[in-house]
Amino acid sequence: MTRPPLAVVAGTGFYDLDALQDPREETVTTRFGDARVVHGAWHGLPVVFLTRHGSGHSVPPHLVNYRANIRALADLGVRDVLAVNVTGSIDPELAPGDLLCLDDFVDFTKQRPLTFFDGSTREGVVHTDVSAAYDPDLRREVLAAAATAGEPIRDGGVYAAFEGPRFETAAEIRLARLAGGDVAGMTGVPEVTLAAEADLRYAAISLVVNPATGVGDATEPITMAEIEAVLARSSTAVLAILDALVAARAAAPDPAPDPAPEEEA
């Protein structure tokens, strides 16, 4: 039985997935636009890699075509999506290089298309439940893989999504903290909610790369040089977790096929 491809979606600092064997690029056309993906094999399993910001980080977070990206993954037969989000810490106990396996979000974005169901499709208006937008079973796989890889990761965390591309103000971060936010980022929403609408299981690893504005003793402006320095030394931990997860799946027996429907008498 051919397993459905696993999707890996990543952003800043993750523009290639060197672990993929026999990589092949494809542009997938959807009614929401085109999405560029890379197909390959990882531990013998089919994987689809998508980098949100395009080649050379050419697409800013507020202009990422999230609907085309998620629709393309669903059209390719993906069932599970592993996302990587580079974030700033709202929780002062989180330091650059720390990892979280997210379990909730709060949305402060303002102008993004947020749904596939805008009233123009045959489904009409649909209200999607997102109480478990970060799939519990897939989250458990991430946590188990982190343990196997020996990489510390916090079980749970609230992602506060901001519009970008500017960084947040100190007042905005205080507001996000009051709302329960642990980390701040610019790409996690609507990606997670669109995955729920498309019936895809979704889990996300958050890599902290800087204190958010006004957090802790940080007084210097946030710079991309600071972020890239943390990415250079910490991205290997994320990749090790992904590798352990894919390896565990490769070692597991193939899932049983769905039973054939009974014929009517």
Rank of each mutant, 00 (worst) to 15 (best):
residue 160 A to K: 05
residue 118 D to R: 07
residue 179 A to H: 13
residue 23 P to C: 03
residue 65 N to H: 11
residue 87 T to N: 07
residue 251 A to N: 03
residue 113 P to E: 15
residue 193 T to M: 04
residue 137 D to P: 01
residue 226 E to C: 00
residue 245 L to M: 09
residue 79 R to S: 11
residue 48 V to D: 01
residue 119 G to R: 00
residue 223 T to H: 00
residue 32 F to I: 06
residue 158 V to N: 00
residue 215 V to T: 14
residue 176 A to I: 14
residue 100 L to I: 02
residue 256 A to S: 04
residue 9 V to M: 12
residue 14 F to I: 08
residue 133 A to R: 05
residue 210 N to W: 02
residue 214 G to S: 10
residue 47 V to L: 13
residue 74 A to W: 03
residue 133 A to L: 14
residue 25 E to H: 02
residue 139 R to S: 13
residue 42 W to K: 07
residue 182 D to H: 14
residue 124 G to F: 02
residue 128 T to N: 11
residue 208 V to K: 13
residue 134 Y to E: 09
residue 59 V to M: 07
residue 105 F to T: 04
residue 159 Y to R: 00
residue 151 E to M: 15
residue 43 H to W: 05
residue 259 P to A: 08
residue 7 A to R: 10
residue 161 A to T: 13
residue 87 T to Y: 01
residue 58 S to L: 01
residue 243 D to C: 01
residue 132 A to E: 14
residue 31 R to A: 03
residue 130 V to N: 10
residue 189 V to H: 10
residue 149 A to L: 10
residue 151 E to L: 05
residue 114 L to Q: 15
residue 169 T to F: 06
residue 166 R to A: 02
residue 202 Y to E: 08
residue 183 V to I: 13
residue 89 S to N: 02
residue 184 A to L: 07
residue 227 I to L: 13
residue 239 L to C: 02
residue 137 D to T: 15
residue 163 E to H: 06
residue 96 P to E: 05
residue 64 V to D: 13
residue 162 F to L: 10
residue 264 E to H: 09
residue 113 P to W: 01
residue 10 A to K: 06
residue 241 I to E: 08
residue 265 A to D: 12
residue 2 T to I: 07
residue 251 A to K: 02
residue 84 V to H: 05
residue 36 R to M: 12
residue 15 Y to E: 11
residue 220 E to F: 09
residue 196 A to M: 06
residue 88 G to I: 05
residue 237 A to D: 15
residue 50 L to P: 00
residue 230 V to K: 04
residue 115 T to W: 11
residue 132 A to V: 01
